[in-house]
């Protein structure tokens, strides 16, 4: 079983912390993670908003490259890329005509053989079974696991966890000693699609999520998506201004939380790069 990784643009830039923590975990558990060679951007929201063919062709090139690299599965830590890649794979698998059409555009063969897994599936498969005896600093905090939209919807295509009140992240967090709280905003949208063009909407939507998590006593919001992270963390000043409050709750990638629990340094898992200070005791 050869597992590849498609980091995507965010992990290469503003979500470097996420990237670092994913690779730090892989290293700590002795997992090979080869990058899809010469990968390109998946096109994100912009492509499917403006141009359907493009929104299929860009992910198709990535998937075709993964196949060429002989990868049986690729982990896609970015929930947005995971969503786009899975949607493309599903559409192309069920419609051979469309697959030929897209193959023509990217000038590469695409068979649809590489599996796509998100970061939690990767953790469930390769890390949680080997967690025993590895936890040195149990993550003894109340946490609000925030899944966002792209990890669980559309449910019929992604077929991952349940679309209302998902549990997979909560389960992983409880395994490292955390106490996941019930909270109704788990899958509400943070506004990512408009993160730069309508920052007011982002402040409003992200603020609701933060306010609710904080009011229920959560000490951290756990995420698995760089979009969610940048909205909840990097945009915190805007959010606080919009709401007239001082929200202090840190936003932590699930990979960082695990990394911390098994004793990796804050630097190694990118905790120093956050806008909202993270102090885990």
């Amino acid at each position: 079983m050869k597992t590849g990784i498609y980091p995507g643009c965010s992990l290469n830039g503003s979500a470097r912390d996420y990237n670092e923590s994913v690779f730090a975990l892989a290293e700590a558990f002795g997992l090979e993670l080869e990058q899809v060679s010469d990968w390109n951007c998946c096109g994100a929201t912009a492509a499917h908003n403006l141009n359907k063919d493009l929104s299929l062709a860009l992910p198709a090139r990535i998937l075709a490259l993964a196949e060429k690299n002989g990868m049986d599965e690729i982990i896609v830590p970015c929930a947005a890329c995971y969503n786009r890649l899975t949607l493309t794979q599903t559409e192309l698998r069920k419609d051979p005509e469309l697959r030929n059409h897209v193959s023509g555009i990217i000038e590469m063969d695409y068979k649809g053989t590489s599996g796509i897994i998100n970061v939690i599936e990767w953790i469930d498969k390769y890390i949680t079974p080997n967690l025993e005896g590895r936890i040195v600093i149990p993550y003894a905090h109340k946490v609000a696991c925030y899944y966002g939209c792209l990890l669980v919807r559309p449910h019929k295509v992604l077929n991952y966890d349940r679309p209302e009140d998902p549990q997979s992240m909560d389960l992983v967090m409880s395994k490292i000693g955390a106490e996941p709280i019930y909270y109704p905003f788990k899958t509400e949208c943070c506004g990512a699609g408009l993160s730069i063009s309508r920052t007011d909407i982002v402040s409003k939507l992200s603020g609701k999520i933060i306010e609710d998590a904080e009011s229920r006593g959560a000490e951290a919001i756990i995420v698995a998506c760089p979009m969610c992270h940048s909205n909840l963390d990097m945009r915190r000043n805007d959010i606080n201004k919009y709401w007239g409050k001082e929200f202090k709750i840190p936003v932590i990638f699930i990979t960082q939380a695990i990394g911390h629990a098994i004793g990796l340094t804050d630097k190694k898992i990118g905790l120093k790069r956050h806008f909202v200070d993270v102090k885990i005791s």
């Binding site: 492509a47 141009n51 408009l194």
Partner: peptide, 22 residues
């Protein structure tokens, strides 16, 4: 206008480099 400007800038960025240059 601004929403589309963002999408277009986004696509433009990857058009020339292959990856997003934030």
């Amino acid at each position: 206008r601004r929403i589309i400007a963002f999408h277009k800038s986004f696509l433009n960025s990857i058009k020339y480099t292959g990856r997003l240059f934030e």
